[in-house]
Amino acid sequence: MATPKFSRPDISFHLELKKRISDYFKEVGYSQTGNSQLFIKATVLVVAFLAFYVHLVFFTPHWAFALLECVILGALTASIGFNVMHDGAHGSFSRYQWLNKAAGMSINFLGANVFMWKTKHNVVHHSYTNVEGVDDDMNARPFLRLCPAQKRYKIHRFQHYYFLLTYSLLYLYWVFFTDYKKYVTQRVGLVPIQKMKVMDHISFWGFKLIHAALFIVLPIYVVGFLPWLVGFTVYGLFAGLMLTVVFQLAHSLEETAFPLPDVQTNKLEDEWAIHQLKTTANFATNNKVISWVLGGLNFQVEHHLFPKISHVHYPAISKIIKEACCEYNIPYLEHAKMRLAFWSHVKHLKMLGRA
């Protein structure tokens, strides 16, 4: 299956959006990348992560407090991914490329691999959002049916009851299976990854060994196998749950579309920007705590349209994008509260499980 093509209208809404956003940054005189606000947040998150890691491994508290700290460590892992790695991998963390590279490589210390991530996320997901058979982020088979084009199994009738359990497995599955699958097959789903250089191979295996040493070997040596197993499982499950729920609340809802290319032409109906607007939704954008923790990924519309702009600018440019959508009569999907987006996702799963 060849990757589909997007329509090319005579009057491009995407070009109009880019002009308006460019004019905004010229007017305010800001860089489109991160600023001191982001750098301070990144420092707080990384220092907090290191502090909880050291306390858990070398000064292990009573088991009840230890489990709570494992949950917090999982939340910090996800938040570093949202705030530091994500902007870095998109080249929007800083105006300096070496700093973007360093921020992006934070995912390597947390067990995953930034080289594989860039193909899966930056190239495939951002290009072909919600397109079944191409967007690998929609693939949770056979456990979940996330879009109408996927085959329905009897178990899916109950998926709106057990989906959180499946989501919680994402981080552990990602770190210990899917990265290796991509490495061996040299593909993300149907899409080939960029040819790996010698240093890419060394980085892949070197950081996998570092992660194993820091998160498996050392903790087992210090606290013992069973305490490590319980703690690491709680940590991994919570990180996976947080990572997956944020993604699903942006793309897998009652309101979002799941376009398929024309069978004859292999072309999608809309141009790329409009495709993104139909397949992506915001949630809780007025909640500053959620926006801070999630690295602005509750502003998914803005992120998908302008992935090279740092999330610290999303609240400002969201007003411009929303106004343009209103003028051109193009949908701008959002939920005022996170719980409303969550409920929409549950109803979406329920509908797909019984349809």
Rank of each mutant, 00 (worst) to 15 (best):
Y24S: 06
H275D: 11
I320H: 06
R354L: 13
A48W: 00
H14P: 03
H313D: 02
N108D: 09
H311F: 07
Y24V: 09
S127E: 02
M138C: 03
L45D: 01
F247Y: 10
T43I: 03
M85A: 03
A103N: 00
V301P: 04
A78W: 01
D200L: 08
M351R: 15
P315T: 09
K278H: 14
I21C: 04
R8N: 14
A324P: 06
A78H: 02
M116T: 08
L45I: 01
C325K: 09
V71I: 15
T244N: 02
V312W: 01
L45M: 10
M351G: 12
N329G: 09
S203V: 04
H304Q: 08
R339F: 10
H211G: 03
F65R: 13
P148N: 11
L218V: 13
A149P: 07
N286S: 12
G91R: 07
S344E: 12
K197R: 14
V188T: 11
E69Q: 13
C326G: 09
P219I: 08
F258E: 05
Y328H: 15
H304N: 07
A64W: 13
H125Q: 06
P148G: 12
E254T: 13
H55P: 02
K5V: 11
L260R: 13
I80W: 02
V47T: 14
L68G: 14
Q276L: 04
N329S: 14
T3A: 13
K197D: 08
N100I: 02
L56M: 14
H275E: 12
A2I: 08
T279E: 03
T244S: 04
S291V: 04
A48V: 03
T33Q: 06
C326R: 14
E255D: 14
F258Y: 15
I290F: 00
W343S: 11
D23P: 05
L352Y: 08
L297V: 01
V114L: 02
G91C: 10
F13Y: 15
F176G: 11
Y183A: 04
N130Y: 05
A2M: 12
T244C: 00
H126D: 02
